[in-house]
Design a binder for these strands. Structure first.
Lengths: 113, 113
DNA sequence: TCAACATATCAAGATGTATTGAGATATAAA
DNA sequence: TTTATATCTCAATACATCTTGATATGTTGA
């Protein structure tokens, strides 16, 4: 992930509805959820609004879609999230390991759970 | 860091100049850099443009400022970056550890360097 | 105190982004 | 094949953000 990719992903995640969609899909697992279910979870957002945000997220590589019957299922693309984390940590840890080390240590707890 | 904080930080990082400022300040270390030097590194951005982006980043908690002589020095607030990473990893790892684990493993390399 | 330097503030215009509502497309069931 | 379901596309509007240029604030040295 380079700076341009990161910008795209940050922009995608900097909108409330989109951030909530991503978090929902991450916990929903690889199966994903149909667009309608996602919209229902977003305070019943309109279909055009959902399409706008879902396609935004898909362009950013954070989610992907597949048709199944008459539904379209969206699922999280985990590597994009982890690549974003890598990108941030590259700055943080390569730049000044001694400043960042405590934070990284704190993270291990979160991740081994 | 909750969802609202994360949104603010994502928004701050989703702009090219601001992302570059943050990356510059992260590698610049705790001392920080004067606004003028940062502006010079941003293709000679105008003072008003710099002030706009610097105050945006400061509001988001990614950088802080202190006056020193007639300069104002800006420096990275590392915990905000690591909290953002935690926030992302909480989704990723708490949600589906088995999917996220390989990515997390790859990260350790980056961080132990 | 006056001149210079460094940075911040303000208002205006340009650009980009989000929401809405109407309609189009694709799939499935009757 | 007609109808209902699920979702997408498009155009218009509203809203937010970025940049520019002019000006103000605060600091140092002459």
């Amino acid at each position: 992930m380079d700076e341009a990719d990161a910008l795209t992903v940050f922009a995608a995640l900097s909108q409330e509805t989109r951030l909530r969609i991503v978090r929902l899909l991450v916990t929903a697992g690889p199966e994903g959820l149909p667009a309608g279910a996602i919209g229902a979870a977003m305070d019943g957002a309109s279909s055009s609004r959902m399409a706008f945000h879902l396609s935004h997220l898909e362009r950013a590589g954070l989610i992907r879609s597949r048709r199944e019957g008459r539904s379209i299922l969206y699922s999280a693309v985990y590597p994009t999230l982890s690549n974003l984390i890598s990108f941030l940590m590259r700055d943080c840890c390569d730049g000044h390991p001694e400043v960042c080390a405590p934070a990284v240590a704190a993270l291990s707890c979160t991740c081994e759970a």
